[in-house]
Structure formats: C-alpha cells, structure tokens
Simulated assay, not measured.
Amino acid sequence: MQARGACHRTVFLVLSRTALAALSAIVLAASAFAWSTVSTISTGVERSYAITDDAPRSESGRNVLVMGLTTRLDLHGEPLPDDVLRRMQAGESDRGGYNANTLILLHIPDSGPAVAMSVPRDNLVPLSSGGEGKIKEAYGRAKIVEEDRLRVAGTHDKRELERAGREAGRRAQVRTVSTFLNQPIDHLVEISLIGFFHIAEGLGGVDVCLRHATKDPLSGADFPAGPQHLDAGQALSFVRQRHGLKDGDLGRTRRQQAFLSAVTKRLRGADVTAVQAMIDMAKQDVVLDARFDLVEFAGNLPAEVRFDTLPIEGGAHLGGLDVNKVDQDEVRAKVTELATAPPPPPPDDGIPCVD
C-alpha cells in the first residue's frame, strides 16, 4: 500500500508541474510515468502515422502539435450516444465537420520552461493541399479529398474511409502548421469535443472565473460573473463560446488556456479514481503519433509551462468569409522569441479571471 501511495503522489506531482499544456497527452504521460510498472498505459490508445520517419525533426528540444477537432463523432466516425450529445450541449452529431479549431504548438526545450503557443484558427495561410484557406481547414479538406479518391478506387467501407481520411487530415494539418510556423513537428496529439467533455467529467467539473456575466445560446454558455464551478457540459460551453466575447475567437483561445489551468488545479487535489478516469478518457478520445513514447516524454517534462497566443494583424473579409490577416515573418519571429524567452514569475495559485 505504501508503494502504491507513493506512486499516486508521483502522478499528482507530475500533473501539477506540467500545467497540462498538451491536454490529454500530458495526462497520459504523467500517468504513464507513475503507472508504467503496473499498467500497460499505451494499450488501446489510437496511433497515427501522419508524421513519417523521415520527416524533419527539431534540433533543439521537441515540438508537439495539439489539434482539437470540432467533430461530434467518435474516432471511427460513429455518432455519439444521444444522452452524451445532450449533456455536451453542442448540437447534433452531424455538426462541426473536421476543422481543427484548437491548434497549440507545445515547444519543450532541452532545458528551461516549455511554452504552449495557441495558433488562431482563422489565420489565412497557404494550405499543404494547395491554395489558401483558414489554417483550421487543412484537416477537413484533405480528409474529403482522400475519401473521394478511395471511393473512386472502389473502397466503400465506412470505417476504412474514416480511418484513411483522418490520417490524410492529420498529415495535411501537420504540414500546414509546420510550414506556416517554419517549425518541424515531432509529435502530434488529436482530441475532439468529446475529449474536452470527458476531461471535465472525469474530474467532476472545473473551477473558472469570469469578469462579466455572459449568455450565448449558440454554445449553451450562461454564466454569472465571478468565480464558479462548472460541470462537464458547462465547461464545454465555456471553451466553445466566442459570440458575445470582446475579442471573439481570440477570447475563446484565452478561455481554452483558462480551462487548461483549471484542469491542472483540479488535478492537484484529485484522487486515484479521477486519475484513472483521465487514463480511460484518453484511451477513447485521443490519437497520438506512433513515435510518441509516453514514459520517456513524462520523464523529461520541464517544471514550467507558459501560455501565449501568436499574433494576427487584424480581421478581413475574403470570399464571404471572415479571416485573420497575418504577417508570416512576424509570427515566425514570435515563435522564436517565445521559445527562447526567460522564465516568467511563479504562477499565482488563484483562479485567473477571463472575459
């Protein structure tokens, strides 16, 4: 019992240090670090080969691309149960498509703090498939093209089309982000809306703080001002809301970062049941690249993780769509600056308030 208790304390220590910047990847990694001798943590986790063995690698440190998808379907393209969709408050299973609405580049240096850089989803960039589009669209566009190609070639099995289409989407999203930021991608993590929901559900909800009361029927958000506890459905509404926020999508990005901080604080007091719930969640909701060694990753996590959002020049209207104009050189310079900046002051243990 003493050995198991020490193992559990190690889980909480690692989770507290990481700030959960890589979402479920770090939950998995932290758990793997402590549970590797008693549990086959990697068994059952979906793996991707979107990053090939001959792909460019970081020369200093590692870059992990975290992709949060809008789809309301499971990993096999099947609808979620009706009761889950109802509790998620995110609409029917056919909504959302396959946009990568959350894009975070987690840079882990050889020494010093890590930095999690949010990439605004509506940035107008060159896509790996050709032409320009919103950076979030690289995944969904490539998925459609690959599935159409396979159907013409005679493949009609739904699950095979879903698997191959999503692999094509991952390849396209990795290449698009890598080219835009001029950074190699060493690892990828993919999680969909149900993953965000399961994180909060496994922890019994999260604590957040809002500067102003807000209500948005599109996301289901209906919150008073001030500190408050959100259940899983409310937490998903919290990270999805953009209408009614002062900065729109950029405000939502800060909500996502606040959610990650809230999860970290919740995990500090979590019991073994909650940690196991995180493991079970990750196994059904997360995709990792084939080379992602969770135990090695956990053993080399830095003590600090900083959060920031990459810059945009402003909004624009193009072809009937609202997009973000960006200066690619400015964005790349910001990535370099964030990756080499000195550590910030120690974080406040309180709950930061957001709009």
Rank of each mutant, 00 (worst) to 15 (best):
Q183P: 11
G204D: 09
G251I: 03
R291A: 14
A282W: 02
V206N: 09
V272I: 11
R170S: 07
S178W: 04
Q173G: 06
H243E: 11
T214Q: 15
Q183F: 11
A200Q: 09
I194V: 06
T253F: 01
G269L: 02
Q276P: 02
M278E: 06
C209N: 15
G169W: 01
I185K: 12
V275I: 07
E201S: 00
L193Q: 05
C209P: 15
A213N: 14
D280M: 00
L188V: 10
R211E: 15
H187A: 13
I191A: 12
Q257D: 07
V286I: 06
V272G: 13
P227T: 14
T214I: 15
V206Y: 10
Q173H: 04
D207H: 08
R242C: 03
E296R: 14
A213V: 04
D216I: 05
Q241C: 04
P184G: 13
F238I: 07
A277Y: 03
V295F: 10
Q228Y: 08
R170L: 05
H198C: 00
T179I: 00
V206E: 04
Q257F: 05
D216R: 10
R170K: 05
L236K: 01
S237V: 01
G202A: 10
Q256H: 08
L236I: 00
R291I: 06
F259S: 06
I191G: 10
F196R: 09
A290Y: 08
T176N: 06
D247E: 11
R242V: 01
G205K: 08
R171E: 08
L203F: 10
T253Q: 09
L245I: 08
G220M: 02
R175K: 02
V174L: 03
V208H: 12
D216S: 14
V287G: 04
F259T: 05
L218T: 15
D231E: 03
A200I: 01
D231H: 03
H212E: 15
Q183R: 15
R268Q: 13
P224D: 15
D222F: 02
V239A: 03
D216G: 12
F196P: 09
L181E: 14
V263E: 11
G269V: 01
P217V: 12
G251P: 09
V177T: 14
D285K: 00
D280V: 00
A270C: 03
Q284K: 05
A221R: 08
R175H: 02
A282V: 02
K215A: 12
V189C: 14
R255F: 03
A274R: 04
Q241D: 08
S219R: 04
R268L: 06
H229F: 01
P227L: 10
A270K: 07
L230T: 06
L288T: 09
M278P: 06
L188C: 07
L294Q: 11
V286Y: 07
K283H: 08
R242P: 07
V174Q: 08
A172D: 05
I185Q: 13
A277Q: 06
A225C: 10
A270I: 00
V189N: 14
E296Y: 13
P217G: 15
F259R: 11
V275P: 07
I191P: 15
R171N: 01
R255Q: 06
S178T: 05
